[in-house]
Amino acid sequence: MSEQVKKFLYVNRKAPYGTIYAQESLEVVLIGAAFDQDVSMAFLDDGVFQLTKGQDTKGIGLKNFSATFRALGDYEVTKLYVEKESLDERGLTLDDLQNIEYEDEDDDYAEKPSIRLVSRAEMADVMAEQDVVLSF
């Protein structure tokens, strides 16, 4: 590859259905994934609400795009950083989030978790090591 692979981080800080940010972010990630860059997503503040399990949008007439997070592995987006302090503040734990896995092609397609729980300080480190940070 002639061009150098850049590290892109999509930062998600908004809850899923009150505004369009969360869904737009996911669409941009899926489109951007075609460009063979090193893509990660960060979930902090109200962004952690995007990943709760058991979302059912039938009653509000919106698409339940939480299912789409589980497709990210197909698009080689396998690093979803979730901030522990943001979960704690909202009374959530990892058990409240849906299970998101990817198949590791280099490890006989073993299924591995995409969600990585990080502290606020570790999240700051993740942000600081990116070439491009996009906020939603």
Partner: peptide, 18 residues
Amino acid sequence: DYYEEYQIAPAVRVLIKA
């Protein structure tokens, strides 16, 4: 089936891989 499960139509390279 893919749409039913993930609520999106897959990109072409994802489709071909699958």
